[in-house]
Design a binder for these strands. Structure first.
Lengths: 158, 158
DNA sequence: CCCGATCACTTGAAGCGTCAAGTAAAGTAA
DNA sequence: TTACTTTACTTGACGCTTCAAGTGATCGGG
C-alpha cells in the first residue's frame, strides 16, 4: 500500500477501538434477542420485514437481497428455510421468467407482527435511548459517510 | 416487551438504517481486504495483533479472547489454525497448568508487520478519512455508549 | 428462426462460529 | 489422603455464509 503508512493518532485509535467493539457486540445483541424471542436471525428478520413492507407483500429476489444487504445466494438459502417454515412462498415472475418473486404468506405476516415490537424495543434500548438527539443525527451522518466510503453507490445512500 | 411499543421517528429510523448498513458493509470490507492481501480474517488479525502487543508476545488464552472480542471457543479454534500455519505456539502456564499461554512465533511477528500497514490504510480509507475530526470524536462517544448499553461492563469501556 | 450470450437465480461443497459436552489442573473440605 | 467443585480450555457436531459451478429463461445478431 504505502511504504510509510500513517499510523492512527490516539484520538483516531480510540474511535477505531470503540467502533470495532460496537461492530462486534451490537450484531450479537440483535441476533441474540431475535433468536431467543422469535427463533430467527437478524438477517431472516430483515428479509421478512422487507417483504412485509413491499406492495402486495411481494418482491423480486434480487431487490430483496439489496434491501436486506445480503448476497443473492445467501437470500436464496434463507428463503428456502423460510419457505419450509411456511412464512414465504416463491413463484416465477409472470412477466419475465428469470425473476423469482418472493411472497410473504399470512403466517409470515403474523410472524413479523409478533416479532417487530420486541425487536424495536431492543433497537431502542441498544442504540436510540443511550444517545442524545444530537448524537442520533451524528450517527446517521457518520454511518452514511462510512457506508459510502466502503461501498460507493451501494443500494440507498439516501 | 411492551403492549404499545414506541416506534422509531423518521430521524431515528434514518440513523438506524445508516447504522445497519455500516454494520454489515464495514466488516465485509475489512475482512475482504485482509483476506485478499494477507489470507487471514479480521478476527485472526486481531488475535495476531493482540499477541504482538503483549509483553514477550505471550498472553493467556482467556485474556486474548477478551482483547479480540471473541469467545474462548472461537479463539481456541482460531489459534489451532494459526498454529498449523506456524504463527502461534501454545504452552501451558508454568505457574498454573489450567491456563494456556499463546505465544507469537517469529514468523507470526513477521506476518503482523507485513500485514499491518495495508490494514491500517484500509481503516483510514474506510473510517478515518471520510470523517471530520469532530465526527471522529463523536464516533468514539457513540460507539462507547452503544457498546456499554449492549454489554454493560464488558472488557474495556475505556 | 437459430444460436450464443447474458441474466436471475439455485445448488452443493467447504469453511467458520456457536453450542454443548468433555478433559485436565487447581482449589476446598473432610 | 480422598472426593467434590471450580476454572480454563478443547473438542465435535451442527447451522449458516460464501464461493464456484450449474440451470433455465430471455435477449440480440445473423
Amino acid at each position: 500500500m504505502d511504504d510509510q503508512p500513517r499510523w492512527l493518532t490516539d484520538e483516531e485509535m480510540e474511535a477505531w477501538l470503540a467502533l470495532i467493539s460496537m461492530l462486534i457486540k451490537l450484531p450479537q445483541a440483535l441476533d441474540g434477542q431475535l433468536q431467543r424471542d422469535a427463533g430467527i436471525s437478524h438477517f431472516e428478520y430483515q428479509v421478512l420485514a422487507g417483504l412485509s413492507m413491499s406492495p402486495d407483500r411481494t418482491i423480486r429476489m434480487s431487490e430483496l437481497a439489496q434491501l436486506a444487504d445480503g448476497s443473492l445466494s445467501r437470500l436464496s438459502h434463507v428463503v428456502s428455510r423460510l419457505e419450509k417454515r411456511g412464512w414465504v412462498r416463491r413463484c416465477a415472475d409472470p412477466g419475465d421468467g428469470r425473476y423469482t418473486l418472493a411472497v410473504l404468506t399470512d403466517d409470515g405476516w403474523e410472524k413479523v407482527v409478533a416479532t417487530a415490537p420486541g425487536h424495536v424495543a431492543t433497537v431502542r434500548a441498544s442504540v436510540i435511548d443511550p444517545l442524545t438527539k444530537a448524537q442520533i443525527r451524528q450517527l446517521r451522518d457518520i454511518g452514511r459517510r462510512i457506508t459510502e466510503a466502503v461501498d460507493p453507490g451501494g443500494a440507498c445512500p439516501g
